Deep mutational scan, measured.
Amino acid sequence: KAKLLVLLYAFVATDADTICIGYHANNSTDTVDTILEKNVAVTHSVNLLEDSHNGKLCKLKGIAPLQLGKCNITGWLLGNPECDSLLPARSWSYIVETPNSENGACYPGDLIDYEELREQLSSVSSLERFEIFPKESSWPNHTFNGVTVSCSHRGKSSFYRNLLWLTKKGDSYPKLTNSYVNNKGKEVLVLWGVHHPSSSDEQQSLYSNGNAYVSVASSNYNRRFTPEIAARPKVRDQHGRMNYYWTLLEPGDTIIFEATGNLIAPWYAFALSRGFESGIITSNASMHECNTKCQTPQGAINSNLPFQNIHPVTIGECPKYVRSTKLRMVTGLRNIPSIQYRGLFGAIAGFIEGGWTGMIDGWYGYHHQNEQGSGYAADQKSTQNAINGITNKVNSVIEKMNTQFTAVGKEFNNLEKRMENLNKKVDDGFLDIWTYNAELLVLLENERTLDFHDLNVKNLYEKVKSQLKNNAKEIGNGCFEFYHKCDNECMESVRNGTYDYPKYSEESKLNR
């Protein structure tokens, strides 16, 4: 008799109507990190870190770059004969040098303040090359056809396309004075040089004057150069050297050249137009028929994500570079809930034993079982409120962090190594801060989002509990077992918050 009662009780308990509160689960393989956990499985997430590029040089917003090819900045601007293909260059979106560009200054020497000139050019998007001192009329008392084997072109001695090597005419090199007034309405880049012979005999042979000088002056520039005559090792078949100089001439300003020898005179100059998204990159990537809004030396990035880990040097509207390998923000729920887990921000989770793959029309909802059958029903209101809140948060985070910009490298010469090392340390410090901030932001927001979901499920549970009161009992896994019969209409009233407690209280009292 006792065995019969136990079996009867078990049958009745199993047959009781139930309603459970749960949440969506799926077959997603997404994982995120939080402050407290690593690799948390979630139903949905968004990636904030771009880690792919196309490996190509592309047009930037429809404008092609200027590819210097086998030449570098120095060779292009001075007019190395091997860089003749660059003479027609007028406009570009950015400038590309190759790491091993070999054609710079063909006659050995240095372009002074080269690093600063590169910085200036990094904001130039177009130029006009014009004859600042016409070759045939500007130097009537001097020979202007100086050439050298060091600047050979097609097997013949030649010289820079933008400079003139002035030497004596006959047996004399009379003092020369020439000036140019900038009437271009924009900055003009003027380049010139000073020749330093290897011996007094060479000085006399070329310029006749043993104590020659070169003077260059404008409103913002004033220097006097004296040739340094000295024996030097042979470089590119030359014992002599040429140093090259430049200045930016403001609109309306005048530049005056005065010399008694050794002047490498300007022939062509450049009127410059600035462009905020221009820059110089060093890259071996090849040019393709493609378009982008962000270019790196590795390749083009076409992404609206706020961060990238491809390269710190970028041109155009680019994500911020960070050292992170993963920045994924959760938008959905835990896919593998932890039992009795309390989140960092106070939300209680884990009283549900598992997510439901059968509930596909919402994030949170119900599963019921009664004599009429069983089924899932999503709670659309709480789901939609959660979707709206999380979507707004993700968009806000992306908008705040998605300050796209150009980031170019800084140039230092060989004598500025300590400054370069200090600059690298400062840049590394800023990069570490950006990386830390980005990672911390994602970790915190992921923790908040998961706790937010847990709290929403808990609130749904409490909503049902407050309606049923003692007409049902909690069975410990997020479910309630009714003390009365609850048909589909009754189940719907529980879900929509209109459950009639008094209607079922007498039946429940008897069954309790």
Score class of each variant (00 low, 15 high):
residue 1 K to T: 15
residue 2 A to R: 02
residue 2 A to L: 15
residue 3 K to T: 12
residue 4 L to M: 07
residue 4 L to F: 15
residue 4 L to W: 07
residue 6 V to F: 13
residue 6 V to K: 12
residue 6 V to H: 01
residue 7 L to I: 13
residue 8 L to G: 15
residue 9 Y to H: 04
residue 10 A to P: 08
residue 12 V to H: 10
residue 13 A to L: 13
residue 13 A to R: 04
residue 13 A to N: 14
residue 13 A to Y: 10
residue 14 T to M: 14
residue 15 D to A: 14
residue 16 A to Q: 10
residue 17 D to G: 15
residue 22 G to I: 03
residue 22 G to D: 06
residue 23 Y to G: 00
residue 23 Y to T: 15
residue 28 S to E: 14
residue 29 T to D: 02
residue 31 T to P: 05
residue 32 V to H: 00
residue 33 D to V: 12
residue 34 T to E: 04
residue 34 T to D: 04
residue 34 T to I: 07
residue 34 T to P: 02
residue 35 I to M: 15
residue 35 I to N: 06
residue 36 L to D: 14
residue 36 L to Y: 10
residue 38 K to M: 10
residue 40 V to N: 12
residue 41 A to Q: 05
residue 42 V to S: 06
residue 42 V to D: 10
residue 43 T to M: 08
residue 48 L to I: 13
residue 48 L to Y: 09
residue 49 L to A: 09
residue 50 E to H: 04
residue 52 S to N: 11
residue 56 K to P: 01
residue 56 K to S: 00
residue 58 C to P: 02
residue 59 K to I: 01
residue 62 G to L: 02
residue 62 G to M: 07
residue 64 A to W: 03
residue 64 A to D: 09
residue 64 A to P: 11
residue 66 L to M: 11
residue 67 Q to W: 11
residue 67 Q to M: 15
residue 68 L to T: 02
residue 68 L to A: 01
residue 69 G to P: 09
residue 70 K to N: 10
residue 70 K to H: 01
residue 71 C to R: 06
residue 73 I to E: 00
residue 75 G to V: 09
residue 75 G to R: 01
residue 76 W to D: 05
residue 77 L to K: 03
residue 79 G to M: 07
residue 80 N to V: 06
residue 80 N to W: 05
residue 82 E to I: 07
residue 82 E to R: 03
residue 82 E to W: 03
residue 83 C to L: 00
residue 83 C to G: 01
residue 86 L to G: 03
residue 87 L to I: 14
residue 87 L to V: 07
residue 87 L to A: 09
residue 88 P to T: 10
residue 88 P to K: 11
residue 88 P to F: 15
residue 88 P to H: 11
residue 89 A to Y: 10
residue 90 R to V: 14
residue 91 S to P: 11
residue 92 W to G: 06
residue 93 S to K: 01
residue 93 S to A: 12
residue 94 Y to Q: 10
residue 95 I to S: 10
residue 96 V to G: 04
residue 97 E to W: 04
residue 98 T to W: 01
residue 98 T to D: 14
residue 99 P to S: 05
residue 99 P to M: 04
residue 100 N to A: 10
residue 101 S to K: 00
residue 102 E to T: 08
residue 102 E to H: 12
residue 103 N to W: 10
residue 103 N to P: 00
residue 103 N to Y: 12
residue 104 G to Y: 10
residue 105 A to V: 15
residue 106 C to I: 06
residue 107 Y to L: 06
residue 109 G to N: 05
residue 110 D to A: 15
residue 110 D to Y: 11
residue 111 L to P: 00
residue 111 L to K: 01
residue 112 I to F: 13
residue 114 Y to G: 09
residue 115 E to M: 09
residue 115 E to F: 08
residue 116 E to K: 12
residue 116 E to T: 13
residue 117 L to N: 03
residue 118 R to W: 12
residue 118 R to H: 14
residue 119 E to L: 03
residue 119 E to D: 09
residue 121 L to D: 04
residue 123 S to Y: 13
residue 124 V to Y: 03
residue 126 S to D: 14
residue 127 L to N: 00
residue 128 E to A: 06
residue 129 R to A: 05
residue 130 F to K: 07
residue 130 F to W: 11
residue 131 E to L: 08
residue 131 E to C: 09
residue 133 F to V: 03
residue 133 F to D: 05
residue 134 P to V: 07
residue 134 P to A: 06
residue 134 P to D: 15
residue 135 K to S: 12
residue 135 K to C: 08
residue 137 S to L: 13
residue 138 S to F: 11
residue 138 S to K: 08
residue 138 S to L: 04
residue 138 S to C: 05
residue 139 W to V: 07
residue 139 W to D: 01
residue 140 P to I: 10
residue 140 P to T: 09
residue 142 H to Q: 11
residue 142 H to G: 00
residue 143 T to P: 01
residue 143 T to Q: 06
residue 143 T to F: 03
residue 144 F to K: 02
residue 144 F to D: 15
residue 145 N to M: 08
residue 145 N to T: 08
residue 146 G to E: 10
residue 147 V to F: 05
residue 149 V to D: 04
residue 150 S to W: 02
residue 150 S to F: 06
residue 151 C to H: 04
residue 151 C to V: 04
residue 153 H to I: 13
residue 153 H to M: 02
residue 155 G to K: 13
residue 156 K to P: 02
residue 156 K to Y: 12
residue 158 S to F: 03
residue 161 R to A: 06
residue 161 R to S: 14
residue 161 R to W: 06
residue 161 R to N: 04
residue 162 N to E: 05
residue 165 W to M: 11
residue 166 L to A: 05
residue 166 L to V: 15
residue 167 T to Q: 14
residue 167 T to C: 09
residue 167 T to L: 15
residue 169 K to M: 13
residue 170 G to I: 04
residue 170 G to R: 01
residue 174 P to A: 12
residue 174 P to T: 06
residue 177 T to S: 14
residue 180 Y to C: 01
residue 181 V to Q: 11
residue 183 N to V: 14
residue 183 N to F: 06
residue 184 K to W: 00
residue 185 G to T: 14
residue 186 K to C: 10
residue 186 K to M: 09
residue 187 E to R: 07
residue 187 E to H: 08
residue 187 E to Y: 05
residue 188 V to N: 01
residue 189 L to W: 07
residue 192 W to L: 01
residue 195 H to G: 02
residue 195 H to K: 02
residue 196 H to T: 05
residue 196 H to P: 00
residue 198 S to R: 05
residue 198 S to W: 11
residue 199 S to P: 07
residue 199 S to Q: 07
residue 200 S to Q: 14
residue 200 S to P: 06
residue 201 D to G: 07
residue 201 D to K: 06
residue 202 E to N: 03
residue 203 Q to T: 05
residue 204 Q to D: 15
residue 204 Q to W: 01
residue 206 L to S: 05
residue 206 L to A: 03
residue 207 Y to G: 03
residue 208 S to M: 13
residue 209 N to M: 13
residue 209 N to L: 06
residue 211 N to H: 12
residue 211 N to P: 12
residue 212 A to T: 14
residue 212 A to P: 08
residue 212 A to R: 12
residue 213 Y to S: 09
residue 215 S to W: 11
residue 216 V to P: 01
residue 216 V to S: 02
residue 216 V to D: 08
residue 217 A to Y: 11
residue 218 S to H: 11
residue 218 S to T: 10
residue 218 S to A: 15
residue 219 S to P: 08
residue 219 S to D: 07
residue 220 N to W: 13
residue 220 N to F: 00
residue 221 Y to S: 10
residue 222 N to V: 14
residue 224 R to S: 02
residue 226 T to F: 13
residue 227 P to F: 03
residue 228 E to G: 11
residue 228 E to F: 14
residue 229 I to D: 02
residue 230 A to C: 05
residue 230 A to E: 00
residue 231 A to T: 09
residue 232 R to W: 11
residue 233 P to G: 07
residue 234 K to S: 13
residue 235 V to H: 07
residue 235 V to D: 11
residue 236 R to S: 12
residue 237 D to E: 14
residue 238 Q to K: 10
residue 238 Q to M: 15
residue 239 H to E: 12
residue 239 H to C: 04
residue 239 H to L: 14
residue 239 H to A: 10
residue 239 H to Q: 15
residue 240 G to W: 01
residue 241 R to G: 01
residue 242 M to E: 11
residue 243 N to E: 08
residue 243 N to F: 15
residue 244 Y to L: 04
residue 244 Y to F: 13
residue 246 W to R: 00
residue 247 T to R: 07
residue 247 T to E: 07
residue 248 L to V: 15
residue 249 L to K: 02
residue 250 E to N: 09
residue 251 P to W: 02
residue 251 P to S: 11
residue 252 G to W: 13
residue 253 D to Y: 01
residue 253 D to P: 00
residue 254 T to K: 10
residue 254 T to Y: 09
residue 254 T to C: 11
residue 255 I to K: 00
residue 256 I to S: 09
residue 257 F to A: 00
residue 257 F to R: 00
residue 260 T to R: 04
residue 261 G to T: 00
residue 262 N to E: 12
residue 265 A to H: 10
residue 266 P to T: 02
residue 266 P to Q: 07
residue 267 W to Q: 05
residue 268 Y to K: 07
residue 268 Y to E: 01
residue 269 A to H: 02
residue 270 F to M: 11
residue 270 F to C: 04
residue 270 F to D: 03
residue 270 F to Y: 09
residue 271 A to W: 00
residue 273 S to Q: 10
residue 273 S to M: 12
residue 273 S to R: 10
residue 273 S to L: 09
residue 274 R to Y: 12
residue 275 G to F: 07
residue 275 G to V: 07
residue 275 G to I: 04
residue 276 F to I: 10
residue 276 F to V: 13
residue 277 E to S: 12
residue 277 E to C: 05
residue 279 G to T: 14
residue 279 G to S: 12
residue 280 I to M: 08
residue 280 I to F: 13
residue 281 I to H: 02
residue 282 T to R: 12
residue 282 T to S: 14
